[in-house]
Design a protein around this nucleic acid. Structure first.
Lengths: 155, 155
DNA sequence: GAATATCAGTTTCATTCGTAACCATCAGAT
DNA sequence: ATCTGATGGTTACGAATGAAACTGATATTC
C-alpha cells in the first residue's frame, strides 16, 4: 500500500498515540459497554442525571448540570423523563418560585440502589483489569486533564 | 443540606471516582477544547475522518470507520462534506465498482499538514502538563480499557 | 447460470442535541 | 413603584446522529 509517494501518509500525526483521539475512543467504548447495566430502564443522559441526583441528594437541575457538565436543556429533558418514570419528584421552592427542588422518590431511590450495585460491580471488574496502581494513575490523570482544560471551556 | 435523612445521598456510588463518569467528562472536556484548533474549518466528525485518512493514506470509508470506531453513515456524510470542501477526492475502484477509494487532494494534504502541526503542539502541551510518566501510563491504560471492552461492543 | 447472500456506501426517518429565544420570577437601582 | 438586568427553567427550531431500509455491485450456492 501507498506505492504512490503522492498519497503516502503524513508521518506527523500518529493517531494511535494521539491523546484526544485515544481518550474519545476509550471513553465511548466504556460508556457504551457500561450502558448495558441500565439500558433497558434509562437512557445514558437519564442515567447521568439520576446518578448525580442520587449522590447530591435534594438539588436543582442547574446544580446537576454544573456537576455533570451537561447542557441545561439536556438536563431539563432528562428530569422530565425521570419525573414521568416516577424516579423523582419536584417541588417548587416556597420563597423563590423559580427554583424547582428535585429529589428521588422512595421507589426511585430503591431502584437506583439496585442499579448502583451493578454499576459498582462493573467498575470493580474494570479496575481489577487495570490493576490498582494503573487505575489510580488513570483517575488522577483524568482529573488533571479535566482541570487543566475546563477553565477554557465555554458552555 | 440533606437535613432530611429520607433524601440523604446514597453513599454507594461516588461519581468523583467512578471511572466511566470521569472518562466521559475528561474526554469531552479535551475534545471540545481541542476542537478549537480546527473548529473554523471542520466539524469534529470531519476532523476525525480527515486525520484518519491522512494517516492511512489511500483508503475507503469502511476502513476509516473501522479504524476510528465511527458509524458508517457518519463517515459517509463526513466524506461527502470533505469532498465538497476539496479536502479529498474519490475514485471508484476499477475492478470492484462498489469500492470508492479516497485520498487527500494536494491542497487538502497541505492544509491538513498545517492543522496537524497545531494539533501536535496542542497535544505536546497536554503531555507536558501530565508529565511523561503519567502520560505513558494514561495512554496504556486507555489502550487497555479499549481492548478489554471492544470485543463486547456491537456496532 | 439463475437464485441468493453479502458487501460498500447512501438515503430515509425518528430521535437527540445545542443554540437561541423565551417565560416567569426575583434582585437591585433609581 | 418601575425599570433594568439577572436567574431557573422550558420550548422552538435547525443540525447531527443511528437504526433500518435501500441501491448497485460482487460472491457464492445450487
Amino acid at each position: 500500500m501507498n506505492a504512490n509517494p503522492e498519497t503516502a501518509p503524513l508521518p506527523a500525526l500518529e493517531l494511535e498515540v494521539f491523546l484526544p483521539y485515544r481518550l474519545a475512543r476509550a471513553s465511548e467504548a466504556v460508556s457504551v459497554d457500561f450502558s448495558k447495566v441500565y439500558h433497558d430502564r434509562l437512557s445514558r443522559t437519564e442515567w447521568r442525571v439520576l446518578a448525580t441526583l442520587a449522590q447530591l441528594g435534594k438539588t436543582t437541575a442547574t446544580v446537576i448540570g454544573a456537576h455533570a457538565a451537561m447542557h441545561k436543556t439536556k438536563v431539563s429533558r432528562a428530569v422530565f423523563a425521570l419525573e414521568k418514570g416516577k424516579w423523582l419528584i419536584r417541588k417548587t421552592d416556597e420563597t423563590d418560585r423559580r427554583i424547582e427542588w428535585l429529589e428521588l422518590t422512595r421507589t426511585g431511590g430503591k431502584r437506583f440502589a439496585a442499579l448502583a450495585k451493578l454499576a459498582l460491580a462493573y467498575e470493580a471488574r474494570l479496575m481489577e483489569e487495570l490493576g490498582p496502581k494503573n487505575a489510580r494513575t488513570l483517575l488522577s490523570a483524568l482529573n488533571h486533564l479535566e482541570h487543566i482544560k475546563l477553565p477554557n471551556l465555554k458552555r
